[in-house]
């Protein structure tokens, strides 16, 4: 894996970059429920964009709309200026590859085979050429295998090429999913919570990997709950709340934005509790603490408990 020198601070975008992804007015309704409402999102080439939001904000639904797994009720998604069809495999063929929130590897295939499946759209040997085994077929197979091995080297899995995917440790399964997605030579990589369940060490390795992917010229759109990861990695962050895009901007701007904090932590009560109320609470707490001598008090709940 390349050791990138990027410190994680967003780089100023050079002028003349083109849109890789342009989603405009994407709306997804399931019956009466609007999961995603009128979301616009652009990703420029060579950019890493983060998509954050509380649970149930519609991030993964939005991803599914982008990749053709769902057909958006309204709006359209364009990749490099071309409107994408609503068929998952055609989206991948166009150049958008993705990983899944709950790892979806081909569990009973080897690591190498998993990556070779990712090469599917970039090769076209059909059944007939497989049966005839002409020189073209052999060349294509060799080429695919070489490319797959390169990607395994890149993700650090080359030593495990013949292992079954199911037997890899969790962190390596995530890496393999990224390698498999990269095998389709995408212009845009969508990562759905790539560090979920990872240790701090694995998270930072994933960050290096994503930066290395960017170095190779692939734009990345990443959903994540790990704020440190997102703010260290992304050039731009969009916040999705209840299906709507709340803010979009540089990590600093988003981090500072009150509405974002409010979306995650809730807004203070309208009639904001004043110093008097706070003192009352403190007093009650000390009384209670004194009552159950040495007993623990759940102070964490109190501010919210006050609200209703």
């Amino acid at each position: 894996m390349t050791t990138t020198t990027t410190t994680g601070t967003p780089q100023a975008q050079p002028a003349g970059r083109t849109d890789v992804l342009r989603a405009s007015g994407v709306t997804m309704r399931f019956g009466g429920l609007t999961a995603v409402r009128n979301v616009d999102l652009d990703v420029d080439s060579g950019e890493i964009v983060g998509l954050i939001g509380p649970n149930g904000a519609g991030k993964t639904t939005f991803f599914n709309c982008l990749t053709g797994l769902y057909i958006p009720t309204e709006g359209q998604v364009a990749y490099k200026g071309k409107v994408l069809p609503h068929r998952s495999h055609l989206v991948t063929k166009a150049g958008i590859a993705r990983t899944f929130q709950n790892i979806r590897l081909f569990a009973n295939m080897t690591v190498l085979e998993n990556v070779l499946v990712g090469r599917h759209t970039r090769t076209k040997e059909g059944l007939l050429s497989a049966l005839l085994r002409g020189p073209g077929f052999r060349k294509a197979e060799r080429g695919s295998e070489e490319r797959a091995m390169e990607l395994l080297e890149f993700t650090g899995l080359a030593g495990k090429r013949e292992h079954l995917a199911r037997n890899l440790p969790y962190g390596e399964q995530r890496k393999l999913e990224i390698a498999r997605a990269l095998a389709s030579e995408p212009g845009l990589l969508l990562l759905d919570e790539p560090t979920a369940g990872m240790t701090a060490g694995e998270t930072s390795a994933t960050r290096d990997l994503v930066l290395a992917v960017r170095e190779q010229g692939t734009a990345v759109l990443v959903i994540e709950h790990d704020m440190r990861f997102i703010f260290n990695l992304c050039d731009r962050v969009a916040v999705l709340v209840q299906g709507e895009k709340l803010v979009e901007g540089s990590p600093e701007a988003v981090q500072a934005d009150e509405r974002v904090v409010a979306a995650y932590l809730g807004t203070p009560f309208e009639g904001e509790p004043g110093e008097a109320e706070a003192a009352e609470v403190r007093e009650a707490e000390t009384r209670e603490a004194a009552a159950h001598d040495g007993g623990q008090t759940g102070t964490g709940e109190n501010p919210k408990g006050e609200q209703h």
Binding site: T67, L69, S88, H89, T92, K93, A97, R98, F100, R104, L105, F106, A107, N108, M109, V117, G118, H120, T121, R180, A181, S184
Partner: peptide, 10 residues
């Protein structure tokens, strides 16, 4: 193995 993932792989 997984049709959704296969479709997402093109």
């Amino acid at each position: 193995e997984d049709e959704t993932a296969a479709r997402a792989m093109g």
